[in-house]
């Protein structure tokens, strides 16, 4: 780990101002991914501004009937929150399917969104990686790429986003509140993470110095009928091969509305809008669920080791929707 200066700030504007002055600085919250990456010198900040105690650690109902989650709320507290569990079970389930109990006690909501990929080449400073070292090449594209993207990748990067929480939040159309040098803004979560394109080194659309302060979940009545299904290589404590966050609103056997997002398939949580569109107004049955999944996956471009993700994603989308339509 490179030596760095540790700094506390009095308040959020103070933290933002401190980081604005240090182009090679980072915010520190739970540290569960940043410290990991710093030890390996994959990330080498000169300064850390500790924001763990600055942003809110509370979950509050908003005026519009939604929920505001402070950036410092731990993954454990968010998963255990009564409102989240009854109104947005998909989010609670996503959180408890990630990491481990003791990691979730450290990790924060803001930090979880900003997790970096688990691509083994990104994690190894002795191999080329465009995300870690722009222009050095992508080792995964012709290497071991079972864990990698099948949707929305580029020739420069085929990494996936590792967060489970973010997949659920994507399905819930969350908004991410940030405070930056130019003031505050509110970003739809789908615009937070970016496709790799020509700049895979940029995971998100955040500018330097922008600090996530809270995440808003808009009200969504049928989110109470939602679930998260994650497939991984062991029963627990592993990143997703593929995951799905789904919420379903069925009336008289017809799909009134549906939300679908996939994890483990792309550089960002993948909102399955094509599948959603295909389902609205259709009969809620297995054949339609499967057909909708196939439509979403038509664009899939599997790599050497990950063609299995196409049938796997199709199957768990179908399964999750079927269970949601049966459980009502």
């Amino acid at each position: 780990m490179k030596p760095y200066h540790y700094q506390r700030a009095r308040d959020i504007p103070g933290a933002v101002a401190a980081l604005a002055e240090q182009p090679n600085g980072k915010y520190l919250a739970g540290g569960t991914n940043l410290v990991d990456l710093m030890k390996l010198e994959i990330m080498t900040p000169d300064m850390l501004v500790d924001v763990r105690r600055l942003t809110s650690d509370r979950i509050e109902e908003t005026e519009d009937g939604g929920v505001r989650i402070g950036a410092a709320v731990t993954n454990s507290d968010l998963a255990a929150d009564r409102t989240i569990r009854s109104c947005y079970p998909v989010l609670s389930q996503a959180l408890v399917s990630g990491a481990s109990g003791q990691l979730r006690n450290l990790a924060t909501t803001g930090g979880n969104l900003l997790q970096r990929t688990r691509c083994v080449y990104f994690y190894d400073t002795t191999t080329p990686c465009n995300k870690r070292e722009p222009g050095s090449g992508c080792s995964a594209i012709d290497g071991h790429n079972k864990d990698h993207a099948i949707l929305g990748a580029s020739e420069r990067c085929v990494a996936t986003h590792p967060s489970d929480m973010a997949v659920a939040m994507t399905a819930l159309e969350a908004f991410v509140n940030v405070h930056g040098p130019d003031g505050e803004r509110r970003i739809p979560i789908e615009e937070l993470h970016r496709p790799p394109g020509d700049e895979p080194e940029r995971d998100t659309t955040l500018e330097h110095g922008e600090l996530i302060t809270a995440v808003d979940l808009p009200p969504l009545a049928f989110a109470s009928n939602s679930k998260y299904r994650k497939v991984r290589e062991r029963a627990s404590y592993a990143f997703a091969l593929v995951s799905v966050a789904a919420a379903l609103d069925v009336e008289d056997g017809t799909v009134r509305d549906v939300r679908l997002a996939l994890g483990g398939v792309a550089h960002k949580p993948w909102r399955a809008t094509k599948a959603e569109e295909a389902l609205r107004g259709e009969q809620a049955n297995e054949a339609n669920f499967r057909a909708a999944a196939d439509i979403e996956l038509e664009d899939a471009e599997p790599l050497r080791d990950n063609a299995f993700k196409v049938p796997l994603a199709r199957n768990i989308i179908t399964r999750a929707l079927l269970e949601l339509s049966e459980e009502r």
Binding site: Y6, G31, T32, V35, S76, S100, Q102, L103, N105, L106
Partner: peptide
């Protein structure tokens, strides 16, 4: 609370 002390600075 239980926590991984290796990732806590």
């Amino acid at each position: 609370r239980r926590a991984n002390s290796c990732l806590a600075l």
